Amino acid sequence: MRLALALAATCLAGAALSQDNIAADNARAAADRLAEAAIQLDEAQGARDRVKALSETVHAFESGLEAMRDGLRQAAIREEVLSRELAAREDEIAQLLGVLQSMNSAPSPVLLLHPSGPVGTARSGMILAEVTPALNARANEIRSKLQEVSVLRALQQSAANKLQDGLNGVQEARIALSQAISDRTDLPQRFTEDPVKTALLIASTETLEGFASGLSQIATNETPANLPDIIDRKGALSLPVNGRILRRANEADAAGIARPGIVMATRPRALVSTPAAATLRYSGPLLDYGNVIILEPQSGILMVFAGLDVVYGRTGQVLSAGSPLGLMGGADPDPGALLPRDGQETTTSQTETLYIEVRKDNIPVDPAQWFKTDEG
């Protein structure tokens, strides 16, 4: 009997391990990032380069919202684990509380008496001295987990307000960015687009390859490019949008169609930016690709981004790295839809897709050779 109690005490003590509430800390850190993004938005209004400042602000809000979602997902998972653990141990908890209650309610002299006399009393005292610390440790562990569940639930309940503030902030930043781009007049113009030739090229084009081969026809008064060589950055360019790789080059989709570019899944209204300084060769609708942006970072290399909802910039402009190109489609969900349910991450929240193709001498090459595709 004494051996069994000693073993039980050892098990209880071993189970009473504290665990830092990392999930809650991450969610709080994400809330701080959203607050910092709001401050950044206020500062961007008076920045000398408002387009650059507002682009960084939009990215800051996107990063903060993503971190908040991830923090809440971790919090939901942690709460579910704790709740299931506590539910599975209801009988054990009830017995433990009963033992502790009886120890507290019984007078000390009664606890020290044993029917077999002084020897039994001494033995029971030794056993009790061994078991009591473990029981107390177990009680403290259960109390700590109950408190953690309470904190996690309160955190998730208050998250809707944080998310709403973040969504309002990013929407305000997008509007300000669109206005700043419309007001911008300081970008170098490498050539002027001939709208008639552009319309004729679009009407006569049946493939992206055919359109790309005729891009030079729509430019008038073109000057030589003076952009830095990007060959040495091959494989190190940042992807133009935050998201994940949905399909890689030449990987067939559900309809069995394989394209030479990659497809990225992104969240609605995500900001698309230039991965490197480049000439904006084309901006607008094309074939069945939706709105398309075609960049020329250097002679002979084209980067095609297709599937945007809103496009920025004017054909012929020279854009610096990180310049905003446009926004993905869709609409921002309400805060309740962003809150994870039962710890489930909604990958379906990345409902928009951006197609990325890289062409060298008008021949498609795998974009993975150019971009850090592990970022998504």
Rank of each mutant, 00 (worst) to 15 (best):
N21M: 11
A35H: 04
N250H: 13
S102W: 10
R28N: 11
R184G: 03
R184S: 10
P285H: 13
E56Y: 08
E251Q: 10
V311M: 11
P324G: 07
R89F: 11
Q317H: 12
H114E: 12
E206V: 14
S323Y: 15
D42I: 12
K197S: 04
G313S: 12
K360F: 02
D32F: 14
I257Q: 14
A75K: 04
E36V: 09
A225S: 12
S105I: 11
P335Y: 03
P109S: 08
A258T: 05
E345R: 15
E357Y: 01
A306I: 05
I127Y: 14
Q171W: 00
I257C: 06
E92H: 02
Q344D: 10
R73M: 11
A38V: 05
S63L: 00
A173D: 10
A270Q: 03
L7P: 01
R314Q: 12
L280Q: 06
G256D: 02
A252M: 03
A249L: 01
Q156R: 15
G307V: 06
E56C: 05
L302K: 08
G117Y: 04
L112R: 15
A44K: 09
A38K: 05
R184T: 06
L128D: 07
L286W: 09
T348H: 07
G307M: 07
A160H: 09
S105D: 14
A331T: 11
L167D: 03
S273F: 01
A88I: 00
D309F: 02
L200M: 10
Q19K: 08
A44Q: 10
P107K: 09
G210R: 13
T220P: 00
E296M: 10
S283C: 10
R48D: 13
A27G: 08
L65R: 06
L17V: 12
G46M: 05
W370D: 04
P133N: 06
A29W: 00
P333K: 04
R69C: 05
T198Q: 09
R267L: 02
G376T: 01
E206L: 15
D70K: 15
A122T: 14
T132V: 14
N21I: 09
A255S: 08
L155E: 15
L7S: 14
L17E: 08
P228Y: 02
I218F: 08
L286M: 11
S158L: 03
S18G: 14
Q74Y: 06
E357S: 11
D332C: 00
E296H: 10
V241M: 01
R190L: 15
L237W: 06
N104A: 14
R184V: 02
A44P: 01
D229A: 07
E209L: 15
E62N: 06
S63N: 13
L155C: 04
V151A: 11
P224E: 02
L72G: 06
G313E: 08
L280I: 09
E345Y: 07
G117R: 04
R33A: 14
L112Y: 14
T198Y: 03
P228G: 08
F191W: 09
V292N: 15
L208K: 13
Q298L: 00
G336I: 14
E222S: 12
L187I: 06
E222M: 07
L65C: 04
S83I: 01
L308H: 03
G261H: 13
F191E: 04
I293D: 12
Q157F: 07
T57C: 15
T121C: 13
G326K: 02
A255C: 00
P195L: 01
A368C: 06
G336A: 15
L325Q: 01
T207M: 08
E130F: 07
C11S: 10
L338F: 00
S116Y: 02
G210I: 02
I93K: 08
